[in-house]
Design a protein around this nucleic acid. Structure first.
Ligand SMILES: [Mn+2]
Ligand SMILES: [Mn+2]
Ligand SMILES: [Mn+2]
Ligand SMILES: [Mn+2]
Lengths: 222, 222
DNA sequence: CATCAAATTTAGATGAGACGAATTTTTTTT
DNA sequence: AAAAAAAATTCGTCTCATCTAAATTTGATG
């Protein structure tokens, strides 16, 4: 039985996983520093330690990759984060822009039984309030096919499946436009000069979205 | 806005509150050391720091008392601890001997809104699964009148209101005897040589409890 | 009330996690 | 391929929370 990881270490592993897109891509020191909001010298320190403990493969100047054990820890943190987000929205009626900050704390609670029971209490959800997939007990993510809104064409009708940006600002913006998971939109026009989209919702209301915004919305054809 | 307390500092304040029985009794360095399971020199260090920050009144060699701000922080931690225990038992079907350890972690989650919403979700409970009172938003504990089982006499009929010992061992022991909050017992005999009690439950079953066990059970006359 | 034991504090160290400044390595530009 | 820029690492230092061992204070006992 090895000593449990510190909260800080858990956050590094989780962040490495996210920045490597769940793949085996190497992650930069500076990308981590930026994401965690810390000096890059501190990141280098921590990477050495995590490397020695066997959670990551770390070669000076070469970036970092998770080992199997690091990866499985990261996925477990993400599982807990997303389950708590579901709890906060479904049971405690938080709005989708309020949950991330609290889930950042709750994701570190250590109790196998708690995670299992919460999962059941929430009816084994597959997606969190932002449409992100929740890995199962074994760390497997549910299948899903989704693309950025920017990948579709004029005339396509799509359903919103998720967002790529959990920031309260963006989420409140979407809420205000009455855009949520499940909303159905038809692409009227894609403006060529800035690639912004003119969309039509189910009530025939027109909505304009910048290219940047469209990059933060996941959809499927419907 | 002062920097939030560390988890360690919160635990000190909570423990000082508990050891002073919620009154203004001075608490010893060594009592704290024992309870927190730490060297007493470490306690001295921490008390200095907490004193400088204004959460406690600390005079060398004279023990420690909470200030108003320290007290209110302590009560808030206890409120959260007990609310989470209710959640774990009522919603996630934990048994009363499993919840304390997890609540020790959950009590440190910082979100005013979370506490408020949880309180409402649980229907504003007044007592936790061990019969301990849950302070309200303003830090006021619900009124309650209760005495140790050892305070009653032969022939008295009492209702169990709570326990004084949250250890899994003791709680499992009670469960096994089918004793729980609300159980009604009549005191048949109090043995004079060891003050142990012979009790009768609602199904006319006889239960023997040692004096020590009786000291850990709170009751009211019924 | 002087002595001794217990409780408490002080002193000195350590490890984790953070920082900024200086240095080194890698990458990009001329 | 040299120079410049960017990225990453090393170095020295800081704070927090902890420890053990030594010194001090308190308070109990003869
Ligand atoms: Mn989130
Ligand atoms: Mn999410
Ligand atoms: Mn408890
Ligand atoms: Mn309790």
């Amino acid at each position: 039985m090895s000593k449990p990881l510190s909260l800080t270490e858990e956050n590094y592993l989780k962040t490495i996983f996210s920045l490597s897109d769940g793949q085996d891509n190497a992650v930069n020191t500076s990308a981590l520093a930026k994401q965690i909001n810390i000096a890059s010298s501190s990141v280098t320190d921590m990477l050495k330690r995590l490397g020695e403990k066997g959670y990551i493969h770390y070669e000076k100047y070469q970036g970092v990759r998770l080992t199997d054990s690091g990866r499985s820890i990261a996925i477990n943190i993400i599982r807990k984060h997303r389950l708590w987000e579901v709890f906060l929205v479904d049971k405690l009626h938080f709005s989708w822009d309020e949950v991330h900050e609290v889930a950042e704390q709750l994701e570190h609670i250590r109790s196998k039984k708690l995670t299992t029971r919460l999962y059941e209490f929430l009816n084994k959800p597959k997606f969190d309030p932002h449409g992100d997939p929740i890995p199962d007990e074994n760390g497997n993510f549910p299948d899903m096919e989704r693309n950025m809104l920017t990948d579709f064409n004029e005339g396509d009708t799509v359903t919103i499946l998720g967002v790529n940006d959990d920031s309260p600002d963006f989420l409140k913006y979407l809420e205000q436009l009455n855009l949520k998971l499940g909303s159905i939109l038809t692409i009227n026009t894609i403006l060529s000069h800035d690639r912004s989209m003119e969309l039509r919702n189910q009530h025939n209301k027109t909505i304009m979205l910048s290219y940047i915004s469209c990059q933060h919305i996941f959809c499927k054809k419907s």
